[in-house]
Design a protein around this nucleic acid. Structure first.
Lengths: 207, 207
DNA sequence: CTAACATTCAAACGATCGTTTGACCCGGAC
DNA sequence: GTCCGGGTCAAACGATCGTTTGAATGTTAG
């Protein structure tokens, strides 16, 4: 069975449904009974395959973050290899991989919402887990920005990057109150969002 | 008893503690037992004074949002009365009242975190409640921005305002990963945040 | 076939949730 | 004094939570 239907195994079905429900109702708001019912698996399957609800949450992150971080650092390296790279290129290297992943798979769009949840939740264990995976990437990007903005002192730069990261998280999660037109596809909606955000953030960083 | 200790009545003590715990653990994460225990009132007091947990949540918002919206619109009117008002002035009229309120009372700082929670929560009833109180103000500000940016078409403006609102919510809630120095007071921390955000947002809107 | 293992299942565990109940306290009206 | 009504209290309600159990099931190897 493992090799016959690998993409629909119990484990992966739980992960996919959990991602969707965590995005919609939060980590505390989505119960294991809701998850297992939607995934059409037994309630005990979560504790059998993942050990606990918290381990399930971490696995939802790990599944996507590893790939996302890898792509971001790869694009950053590619950008920095060009001698004449601009601020917009570095911003694009940070934003675009998240955008791409959010459109790759069915659950990708849900994951960026889950990511935004993680910022809102103050759970210490979850924040540490994310810092271990995300903080390293942010530090590399901060160094890249620092080189492109030599006149900006470090503290001022960190302030602005903080705002950029917050705006990115917000925009990617589509938490805004202004709804997109219904005739604009999800893909072009997110591509426009990334494009606007890059220009907006670049102008703010240069201000 | 009502006139003897009005600022420490059971009702207000519940509201204050609920604000703090909702900010820290979310609406689903903070239980009424935690709230009543911290407020040193009986568990049944919440349902007696507010009717339900959901009504308590709404009351936590109403207590601060009425004043916040009033101040924002007053400052916007004052800014628009000046013929030479700039983009930064309008942004300041939006950001500063939230900043002031967050420092006025002990629970004010917690409230902006509660406000950010509201964006993360997808609860339909809560979003409608906020839209009724918040949406009107956002529309007025959007009109003010539109007058100051006549070359920007409406859709592009809405995109950027969406990002600004998201960055504001994020920054005000202090959800960033970059910690402030411990020797910088909370007040100057938030004033710097507002100042940076105004400059950043203005540059982004003009880009 | 049997033995061993991995997985699924219904059922129950104790804990905690929001809410309700009914007795109790107490200050003011009569 | 009696009565009344707002307020507080301990206790319990049923529902739901995450987790555990032990039997049933299916799958693989010898």
């Amino acid at each position: 069975m493992r090799s016959a239907t690998p993409s629909f195994s119990t484990k992966e079905r739980i992960l996919g449904v959990a991602e969707t429900l965590f995005a919609r109702h939060g980590f505390a708001g989505a119960s294991l009974r809701q998850v297992t019912a939607a995934a059409k698996v037994n309630l005990a399957a979560v504790n059998y395959h993942f050990g606990s609800k918290e381990s399930l949450i971490e696995e939802v992150f790990r599944r996507r973050l590893d790939e996302l971080n890898r792509h971001r650092l790869a694009e950053l390296a590619a950008v920095q290899a060009r001698a004449d790279h601009a601020l917009e290129d570095v911003l694009d290297a940070f934003i675009r991989p998240a955008l791409e992943q959010s459109m790759d798979s069915a659950g990708g769009a849900a994951f960026v919402r889950v990511l935004a949840r993680a910022y809102a939740e103050h759970d210490e264990r979850l924040r540490k887990f994310l810092s271990d995976n995300y903080g390293h990437v942010l530090r590399d990007f901060a160094a890249a920005f620092a080189r492109l903005l030599p006149d900006l002192d470090k503290e001022e730069l960190y302030w602005r990057l903080d705002i950029v990261a917050g705006a990115l998280t917000y925009a990617m999660a589509d938490f805004g109150m202004i709804k997109r037109k219904s005739d604009v596809s999800e893909r072009s909606h997110r591509e426009q969002a990334a494009q606007h955000l890059v220009r907006f953030a670049a102008a703010g960083l240069r201000a």
